[in-house]
Amino acid sequence: MTSFDIVFGSFLVSALRSATPLVFVLVGETLVQRTGSINLGVEGQMLVGAMAGYGAAALWGDPWLGLVAGAGAGMLLSSVHGLLTLAARANQFASGLAVWMLGFGLSAYYGAGLVGRKIEGFGTWRGAGLDDVPVLGPIVAGMTPTVLLALVVAPAVAWWFWRTRTGLVWRAVGESPEAARAAGLRPIRVRLQAILLGGLLSGLGGAALSVDHTRTWAEGMTAGRGLVAVGLVIVARWNPWWVLPTALLFGGAEALALRLQTADAGVSAHLLLTLPYITSLAVLTLTCLRDRGQAAPAGLRAVMDR
């Protein structure tokens, strides 16, 4: 095994681990936007997911229960967005921001007692005999269960979305709610299902962040990951197949920032931390430059272009 393999392998592992929480959120938001909604509240849903997940893991000592609790909390909060946008027909951007504020406040309030608590996290497979397998060995050995879960969820959803009848229904609703209604489908119900599933996945992403990736809880700890996801859905061109590579862009930027920080490259850590946001905005800009907004589901374009 060459030293290149080791450096590249360990970088890929850190990029994957950074990308993991984002993968869940990105998959969820892709489905939400595909059915014709946009939910900025994913940031708040991630926060309540991170807080509830960390709290559950601390209380019951089981990180798996943390993931379940986080997913549930995210879904619960997303129902507010569903209520506001679907039942009350409120503006989607404003509703998303309201959900974000609410999630930020609720997670800060209920999470106050969790600051500084320790939890039992997931382990990796290091030392399980995998490390000596060439190339892939060290990469797999450095993963945690949430990374593997993300690697399974993204393609599974992509397959479901493109290959099943329900997936077809969801796509139809996003392309033309009127035509879908005329064909006997129920666009509002589908959108609600997508928002709730998006809430579940963003809560799961938040829990993956606090329970597994950072193993801490701090107020506002998601630091814009949910908002980054809303932008990266466009970069992934509303296609669940593209979620993994797109999330890796953010994960790679974050891993690079951390790498440069520990390597003492002479650049301030705070400046390096801007890398993931700037990278996300840059790829978003490049995507918009290429597509000119034409790749969006037609039902969503009405919301985005106004």
Binding site: A88, A90, N91, A98, F104, G105, A108, Y109, A112, E219
Partner: peptide, 25 residues
């Protein structure tokens, strides 16, 4: 904890969106 005011602020936003959205639906 003062974070309660953040929740209250969020609830204010939700209340207004709910009422306005409902009246304008």
């Amino acid at each position: 904890p003062s974070s309660v005011t953040l929740v209250i602020q969020g609830l204010l936003f939700v209340a207004v969106l709910l009422v306005n959205g409902w009246l304008d639906r």
